[in-house]
Design a protein around this nucleic acid. Structure first.
Length: 467
DNA sequence: ATGTAC
């Protein structure tokens, strides 16, 4: 095997500083190119550098070639700020509001709304909803494309959890994988049709991503992601799940599209920022028009990442259901980092970005988690036009991760969890329940957006770490 | 959030 080329080898060859080096190095990692000798690799790179236009339609090298050509000089001005509605404005920090106002000045923006759990993010705030005309903004979808909730409701009484705490902790340890190194091994793997999708072959950027996707499928990642057992309480007898009012055991998971979605988000954001140059305060809101090649690629890649995130949840729930020897009575799932083609009340078709917002179209079910020691809510959307048929995606952070680590004590958090009868595997101080806003107040401020069908109270939680 | 590296 040839020794790997490095950035400096490409610089010596004459590669300019910028994206081309990273893109070329990434391509060289792909199996069929990795096999080439270093001399052959250098000869190929030299040819691409000399005649990038010849490689613009090459399946392997189109993106590297594009990065070698001078960027189209597309400076775009902001326009007058359009109106939008804020829900629970008393809970929202000024930084998030400012980001939303910037987004409302994009010439492609048609409408927007800010959810009560909103906080500062990259580009659009987390908790921001943005409708655009024929444009998709990768950072208005978010880095974790298809980050979503999935709930399975089992025909088991709540005592089931209290009676089997150790057994169920062992189930979570066996059926879920957290962090960046731990994946399911060959014998443990479950197959999934999403790994056979054409997009891995037809979209140049995805051609070296199938391996990672296959390796990480069924895993949860880190940060605020979790898999937890808890008590479901169905409150509304008219619920669409057909469940009688009462208590059940539930399994709730929160995670996204892992490395696949992150690489798609970062790659297409850079592409957007190259082709759509906005004033500094708006630069992370760069868009791709849907009729451009890049826009169509992102749309297809985003949808693949969304389906992949869904597949990861399905494998988690499949493994747990098998370990319990049970079949769920009902399931509720929803993306909360995604973009959809939707129609506004006036009939216009728009792209609705929800970055940390729950789809809440009329009759659409979703899950809004609280914290480890506060209930989450099973909701039915009311299709409110003012929120662009959206609701919050949780309680929202009250305290930054750095502040949480500096100010909270392990013992205090442990005592708080114990007082609420919550068993936790992993989970750092930055995810402690007190770092989140009061979910009851957040729900209060979005009564017009969703109806509550039931609650989910966490009891046995697994997050990253602790193993 | 993240194959925690352009």
């Amino acid at each position: 095997m040839a020794q790997q080329l490095r950035g400096n080898d490409l610089r010596e060859l004459g590669f300019p500083e910028g994206r081309a080096i990273g893109l070329a190095l990434a391509q060289l990692q792909r199996k069929h190119l990795k096999r080439l000798s270093q001399t052959d690799q250098l000869a190929l790179l030299k040819l691409i550098l000399q005649t990038p236009t010849n490689f613009l339609t090459d399946l392997d090298w189109s993106h590297t070639a594009a990065a070698l050509l001078p960027p189209p000089n597309r400076h775009i001005e902001l326009t007058a700020r359009k109106d939008y509605v804020t829900f629970g404005s008393e809970y929202i920090e000024p930084g998030a509001v400012h980001q939303m106002e910037t987004a409302m000045k994009l010439p492609v923006t048609v409408g927007g709304a800010l959810m009560p759990d909103a906080h500062f993010g990259y580009g659009l705030p987390i908790g921001g909803v943005l409708a655009t005309d024929n444009a998709v903004i990768p950072y208005a979808v978010g880095v974790d494309i298809g980050c979503r909730m999935a709930l399975s409701i089992f025909p088991l009484p709540p005592q089931y959890l209290a009676q089997r705490v150790q057994e169920l902790k062992a189930v979570l340890l066996a059926t879920t994988k957290f962090g960046n190194r731990d994946v399911f091994r060959h014998g443990q793997k479950l197959g999934h049709a999403v790994l056979e999708r054409d997009e891995f072959a037809t979209i140049p950027f995805l051609r070296n991503k199938q391996e990672t996707a296959a390796a990480q499928i069924g895993t949860s990642g880190g940060g605020n992601h979790f898999v937890e057992f808890g008590i479901v309480e169905i409150l509304d007898p008219t619920n669409e799940m057909g469940l009688p009012v009462g208590q059940y055991v539930g399994l709730l998971s929160h995670s996204g599209s892992r490395g696949l979605g992150a690489s798609v988000a970062n790659h297409y954001t850079k592409l957007a920022m190259d082709t759509c140059q906005l004033p500094a305060e708006a630069k992370h809101l760069a868009w791709l028009t849907l009729d451009s090649e890049g826009g169509q690629e992102y749309w297809a890649a985003m949808n693949l990442a969304g389906d992949y995130a869904s597949a990861c949840h399905h494998q988690i729930h499949q493994r747990v259901a098998k370990a319990l020897g049970e079949r769920p009575l009902a399931k509720v799932e929803n993306h909360h980092n995604f973009a959809w083609k939707e129609r506004l009340a006036d009939g216009r078709e728009v792209i609705v970005h929800r970055k940390g917002a729950t789809p809440a179209g009329a009759g659409v079910l979703g899950v809004i988690p609280g914290s480890m020691t506060a209930p989450g809510f099973i909701v039915r959307g009311r299709g409110a036009a003012e929120s662009l048929s959206s609701a919050s995606h949780g309680a929202g952070r009250l305290m930054s991760r750095t502040r949480a680590k500096a100010e909270l004590g392990e013992a205090d958090v442990r005592r708080h969890l114990q007082a609420h009868g919550v068993e936790l595997i992993g989970g750092g101080l930055d995810e402690a329940p007190m770092t989140y806003k009061d979910i009851f107040a957040v729900m209060q401020s979005q009564q017009e957006l969703v109806d509550v069908l039931g609650t989910f109270t966490p009891k046995i939680v697994r997050m990253e770490g602790g193993v």
